[in-house]
Design a protein around this nucleic acid. Structure first.
Lengths: 179, 179
DNA sequence: TACGTGTTGTTGACGAAGCAACCATACTGC
DNA sequence: GCAGTATGGTTGCTTCGTCAACAACACGTA
């Protein structure tokens, strides 16, 4: 964190500094697609559904309020409503009105849901291990976690301070043809 | 790449080794959402549309075959068809049948599309810089690029060798309650 | 030339997710 | 106790993307 230049070089559309960003996007797209495919093929559960099941399973008493679930699985309220609808349809989750707040609803994991989650976990953990952890060695994983955490935190809700930016001056010069 | 242990420790659902993976997911979700919001708000273009416009602009003669475009923007063939439909509707792109292959169609960037892209680039490059490059320092960026590239490559199409995996034995033990 | 096979892109049907509007319930001050 | 406001979830509508089926065309071979 010792960038002393007042203004960094402008960032253009084919700047080499964009390479890590594009690699990041590509890695995410490919890995999450793989994981999703594996989960669907082997356990008839999508990635999002798996994530929800896991989140419910980790909550106290294996039940969780809809709103909280929405936060944790990075979905909108309505998104969660529908996701839970599907899981209820499959008998993996049950809906239960909250005792302390009659407005609230809770998603409760059923035995069937737990069994499905256990089975799917094997696939999913294997997938993460195979497509992600096995590729980056230990020291890099450490860097990765640190940087990703910082990035996530910075782009999180309720943080809109631009701070010092690489592109205080921008030259979005685009190619005029030719490769 | 000097892991000499025959079998690594099993990976469980709340294993600390999952932290970087979760951070990765969270970072991607938040940053790409931010970028998309900024593009829409300031230029009425989605992230996917921007990506397509840029890809077309970088192609020779600012025109590109649909199939190739699909590969580069990580979308299905039909997805690209519809994306281009929208861009054509907005006058940012034109469709043109391929001279050398009458089956093929090409997407061609219009002047309007180029102008829009130029404008949107400012926003987008600022966003990447602000939400991504500004957060990770130079040495970490290097690690990031290297690891992300490796991960993307490994999970890419036509690569299904599991190799040595962190979880050759898995213990998907799940919490039985309590946080 | 004509036929079968493989590409290339579009279309129809569908699923998943978001936003905004909406109900039901909780809280707050009077 | 009772308005008025805030909060938690669901629903209608729209958007966006995928898969499967299809049409149009290219190419190899007889």
């Amino acid at each position: 964190m010792t960038v002393s230049e007042p203004i960094a070089r402008p960032l253009t559309a084919k700047d080499p500094r964009l390479a890590p960003w594009r690699a990041f996007l590509l890695a995410h797209a490919r890995v999450s697609r793989r994981l999703d495919e594996e989960l669907r093929a082997e356990h008839d559960v999508s990635f999002a559904e798996y994530d929800a099941l896991l989140t419910i399973a980790q909550a106290p008493d294996r039940r969780i309020r809809m709103g909280l679930l929405a936060e944790q699985v990075l979905l909108s309220k309505s998104g969660v409503t529908r996701l839970i609808d599907r899981l209820v349809g499959d008998g993996l989750v049950e809906r239960s009105t909250c005792l302390s707040d009659a407005r609230g609803a809770e998603a409760v994991l059923t035995e069937r849901g737990l069994a499905r989650l256990r089975a799917a976990s094997r696939t999913h953990l294997r997938g993460i291990s195979e497509h992600f952890l096995a590729i980056v060695d230990a020291t890099d994983v450490e860097v990765l976690e640190r940087t990703m955490t910082a990035v996530a935190r910075r782009a999180g809700p309720g943080d809109s301070d631009p701070g010092i930016c690489v592109t205080d001056v921008i030259d979005p010069q685009l190619p005029t043809g030719g490769r």
